[in-house]
Each structure stands twice: as C-alpha cells, then as structure tokens.
C-alpha cells in the first residue's frame, strides 16, 4: 500500500499535491473503489500530514468512500427533475437487475448502488452516473443494458472470479 501511495503522491508533485486529488487517485487505484485505513496511514506518511487530517478530508467529501464499495459505482439521482422524469422506474429496474437496494453492494463485489442528490445532469434527466460517466434520458431497458455490459466486461477479463478487496 505504501508503495502504491508513494507512487501516486510522487506523480502528483510530492507533498504539495492537494489532498483531495491524492485521495481520489488512491481510491481509483483501489479494486474496491475506496480509501482503506491502511491507505489513510500511507497517505499521511507520504504527505507528512497527520492521519486525522487525511481522514478529515476523506470524510468531508462525498466523492470519497471510507468503506469498501463495488468495483463500479452506479449513482442514481434522487432530486425533483429526475424524479419527475421517471426515476422510480429506472431505480426499480436497476435494483431488480442487481438484486440489491440503494446503499448496498452486489455479492460479487462488482457493483455498488447509491442514491445521490443531483448529478448536475438535470437537462437530460432521468440520469445515472456509472463511475465517471453520465448516462441521460434513460429508459429502464437502457439502464439494464448498461449493467449487463459491465458484468460481461468483467467476466471476460477475470473468468468470473470475484473482485478482490
């Protein structure tokens, strides 16, 4: 972990890099899409700040997760414009396809589902965000298709073995 973090911090210009950027990069490098306690310690060491400063920033920004998540993160907007544009049907379809509710992780560790407020994509509501990609003007069928392609992609790469921690 220390080596991974050291490299990320090094690439970002050492101790001067903004903590949030480092946290995001470390999170991206984590198979479970989160910042572990070990990573918090490693970042603190590499950047020579206190552990609780790192934790403070990590716990402040909703973009950072301090708990393991699925390798992929699906965020569904729960605000009014998306609600009016048929969010409920999308949510139902996704939950059914994944077999989990919002706030949960699929048993294979592949996908986390989160309900958030506004993705900044109101102009094409209803919208979801898969990792860094926004999908707008969605139908339930399209949402299900997106999930299936994520699964397919993963099993092609890994022959179906579960996601590591």
């Amino acid at each position: 972990m220390q080596a991974v973090v050291q490299e990320i911090v090094g690439q970002m210009g050492n101790e001067k890099a903004p903590l949030l950027q480092v946290l995001l990069a470390v999170q991206d490098a984590s198979p479970r899409n989160y910042v572990s306690e070990e990573a918090v310690r490693a970042i603190a060491r590499s950047m020579r700040v206190s552990r609780c400063r790192v934790y403070s920033t990590a716990s402040f920004y909703t973009e950072i997760s301090l708990k393991p998540r699925g390798r992929h993160l699906i965020r569904i907007c729960g605000n009014a414009p998306c609600e009016n544009a048929g969010r409920a049907a999308i949510m139902d379809a996704i939950q059914k396809e994944l077999g989990i509710k919002a706030g949960e992780i699929t048993a294979d560790g592949l996908i986390s589902l989160e309900k958030v407020s506004c993705l900044g994509a109101c102009y094409k509501s209803p919208a979801i965000k898969v990792d860094h990609q926004i999908y707008g003007n969605l139908t339930p069928e399209e949402a299900v298709a997106i999930i299936r392609s994520l699964r397919e992609e993963f099993s092609n790469e890994h022959n179906g073995s579960p996601v590591g921690i």
């Binding site: 552990r51 403070s56 716990s59 402040f60």
Partner: peptide
C-alpha cells in the same frame, strides 16, 4: 504538531475526534 484531533465528516455528523 502531534495531530490527533481534527474535525471529521460534514453537516450534522461533524465531530472533532481522532481519525475513525
């Protein structure tokens, strides 16, 4: 510069504690 207490979380959950 011991760095033990700091504010964590946001909104109503803010706490000034050691990490975790």
């Amino acid at each position: 510069e011991v760095g033990i207490l700091y504010s964590h979380n946001r909104g109503l959950d803010i706490g000034v504690t050691p990490e975790y």
